[in-house]
Design a protein around this nucleic acid. Structure first.
Lengths: 188, 188
DNA sequence: GCGGTGCATTGATGTAGATCAAGAAGTGAT
DNA sequence: ATCACTTCTTGATCTACATCAATGCACCGC
């Protein structure tokens, strides 16, 4: 297999992403602009000059790309207490779409690159997220990747349709269906 | 295919690695302990309580794991001007072997976790290395991963045997051989 | 010279997961 | 209740790469 359908890989090839959990909730009660987002609402479009950082307070966002066939490919999930923003800087338009998988509330702030690259704890969090992703990508078989995923994100498994998990794992929904069948057979 | 032979993936599943280029050469002429390493010499063994950081000044190191069949699987190359160390901390033994692919000289220093996690530029470098690795891992097909590899590491392509590049790419030497044949046919 | 020893190539065959296609089962709108 | 729409499942076939096995080829010590 290709790890990802070729189309997704091509779409993923240029972008990077900042994604990390909130380090503390010192800001949570400060009176900042809170946005309510309804399920399906798009917060950022690929190709836009994005300057926003989204801090999820409740609900679930996702980032994804769309290939030349119009197919979506999920890059990351961002549940409550996570921060998500495209890594694009200056004049470079972002590569990713961001939308809501559930009705959500999030804090929207202007992107501040100084802050994004100066906070040591935040940088360490970003490293940890990336390392997890590398380790998951290195998990060889689809079944291993899936088992690894439900270990790390047990809640998300319940909250999104299977085809999105398949997309995140880089496999087709059909393949995930067969994997789940196999796992449930093993348990009997 | 599995992205990596299953055995390698299992070996890779727990470890992480700090690897980044030297940010400046301010230290290069300071009288620090310089170690000459001959080709094949092992600097670190999996399972040891490693406390060393290796700064490559000339030559080429690699980090790798060994699976239960005794097969080596290359995790990263570290040519001159790169720093390499296992991410293990405290009482946790490291997961990786490190050895020299060429006669090398390197500076060996005690691992200083405070330093490894406090230098902002260094953290950003680590993020960049990880992002490159993620993007490479996401490149779907073996041929795409190989083309991406020779773009990023043109020198290393010339300096190490093919089977090691195959190992880094997560494919077999046979597959790499066929890929190279195909590419040379395309060019004719 | 000559026989190792390790690496690259080539062929044959096996397998995980993609792709295509056809149901089945759930959900919402009229 | 019925129709449309989506998700999940299941089967058939295809493809990229693994695995196994044989051969070629360089470099080495003798």
């Amino acid at each position: 297999m290709p790890l990802l359908p070729a189309s997704q890989a091509r779409a993923a090839l240029t972008h990077t992403l900042t994604l990390y959990p909130i380090l503390n909730d010192r800001n949570r009660n400060r009176k900042l602009k809170i946005t309510n987002v309804v399920k399906g609402q798009i917060l950022q479009r690929s190709g836009e000059l994005n300057t926003k950082v989204f801090t999820v307070q409740s609900g679930l966002l996702r980032s994804y790309t769309i290939d030349h066939k119009g197919k979506e490919h999920i890059y990351m999930f961002a549940p409550e207490n996570w921060i998500i923003t495209d890594n694009c800087e200056g004049d470079i338009p972002c590569d990713l779409f961001i939308d809501a998988l559930e009705d959500s509330t999030c804090r929207v702030t202007e992107k501040d690159f100084e802050k994004l690259t100066s906070d040591r704890k935040l940088l360490i969090k970003r490293i940890n997220v990336l390392q997890k992703r590398v380790i998951m990508l290195m998990s060889s078989s689809a079944i291993e990747r899936y088992e690894h995923f439900i270990e790390i994100y047990p809640e998300i498994t319940q909250r999104v349709p299977q085809r999105m998990i398949a997309s995140y794992l880089g496999i087709t929904p059909e393949a995930l269906s067969r994997i789940r069948k196999e796992i449930s057979n093993e348990k009997v």
